[in-house]
Simulated assay, not measured.
Amino acid sequence: MSFNPLEERGIPLEQQVRNWRELNVTPIDPDHCDPYTRCRIITMNGIETEAVFFSHNLARHCMDSDVRRELARTRYIEAQQQRVVNWLLPGLSSVLETAIAYEQVASDLTAWVARMEPDPYLRQAYEFGVLEDFDHLYRYANLYEMIEHRKAESIVDNLTEVMPGRPTKFQHRDPVDNVRDPYDRASTNPLSKLHALTIMATEQQTMNFYMNVGPMYMEPIARQLYQEIGMIEEEHVTHYESLVDPGETWWEQLVNHEYNECYMYYSFMEQETDPKVKSIWELHLNMELEHLRIAADLMRRHDGREAAEVVAPELPRPVTFESNKAFIRNLLDTQIDITTLGAGYVREAHERFQAMQQRVNGDGLVPSEQVIEDHREMFGRDYRVQSEGEHPVASLRAPH
């Protein structure tokens, strides 16, 4: 059944403010929850955080105090939504367990988006990025067994394989080679806009998470690994945010953000297995419908256009968390040795790539490699979780 959020009525904004009791949600049980429930929570936290950040940035560039007040009212609700969503994560989970879950999100959500993306150039951007987050999952899984003496399988539950991707040490690139060409806002498929916003928001959340929690560790290898992977996440945010057409007006971007929130809450409401969490997705969807109406009104008043001119007439196929083992294995077979050059992709280790490698990795201390060496010294092996029928993956190839 089609669902057009522009035609639906949500909860009036003045009825959306919640008290502390209502905000005090019961967290999920980390040992018995559906791993993809955890992934949906992490994803929506990233989406809501991006919505709040964007609204703040728009307010800082707006001269109209009445508009700033309108944005503040909606933003307060978005901030409450973010607290509810993020507080669904349990305090029982360690920071490292949450990091592993973040990388499961990055692997399976980006893989799904790559499979569904209609634009070949944008699809390549997601295919490129997923192999890097996939490798981060492998590095953190080894650190997890070393520090906490538990296995990542208890978190990813065999839905996502844990094995090397494009080696993290080969992910350090000259910053100029992280900037992609944007889609054309006038001609791109509306689904592509939603994909770009979603993956940008989730990668931004991961970048912020690592840059804040990394120095809280005592173990030197943990501090070093979070620092290294955190710098890759900075590259990823540049990679994905550059896909968005900078020619979109502030009001157009606002509508796209609110529409995407409707899309994501609707998608997750449709597939959620935890009844309590599902009820939150449904409530937030009904709130976001009103936020979208307000954004559409602002666009009409300040841009002279209707929201229907820039978004899809109905929500696309729901975003789905599902296992992507075969898809990722195919990428490992065919794209492991790709790097970027300008806004394109190449297989050769070009001059800028080599210079950056020498600059950051030249003294031989590479945390993402050291964590594997330390794990092998401790256990006599590295840590992997793979399905039966595994075939060798040329995971240590560099661009040549």
Rank of each mutant, 00 (worst) to 15 (best):
V52T: 11
S55K: 04
N57Q: 14
D64F: 05
H56L: 14
Y36V: 00
C39K: 02
D66G: 13
S65H: 04
R40W: 03
A59R: 06
D66R: 10
I47M: 06
P35M: 12
T43Y: 05
F53P: 00
S55W: 01
F54M: 10
P35K: 04
D64M: 06
N57K: 14
F54C: 06
T37G: 05
N57G: 13
T43D: 05
T49F: 08
E48K: 07
H56D: 13
R38W: 07
I47E: 08
N45D: 11
C62S: 15
I41N: 01
G46N: 02
R40D: 02
R68A: 14
E48F: 06
R60F: 15
R40V: 02
N57M: 14
H61E: 14
R68Y: 08
I42K: 00
T49H: 04
A59Q: 06
R40C: 03
E48V: 06
Y36C: 00
Y36T: 04
V67R: 10
H56C: 12
E50Q: 10
T37D: 10
Y36K: 07
R60M: 13
M63Q: 08
M63T: 10
N57L: 15
T43L: 10
M44S: 02
D66K: 14
E48P: 01
C39S: 00
Y36H: 00
Y36W: 09
S55M: 07
R38E: 12
C39H: 02
E50N: 10
R68I: 14
R68V: 14
Y36L: 08
L58R: 10
A59L: 09
T49P: 01
I42G: 02
R38D: 03
C39R: 02
G46K: 02
T37V: 05
I47N: 03
A51S: 12
E50R: 08
T37W: 06
E50M: 09
P35I: 05
D66P: 07
M44L: 13
R38P: 09
P35D: 13
V52I: 12
I41D: 08
C62H: 13
N57D: 15
A59G: 09
V67P: 04
H56F: 12
A59N: 07
P35Q: 05
I47F: 00
R40N: 00
N45M: 01
A51Y: 00
R60D: 15
R40F: 01
H56M: 11
Y36N: 00
M63L: 08
V67H: 01
C62R: 12
H56G: 12
M63R: 06
I42P: 03
R60T: 11
S55E: 09
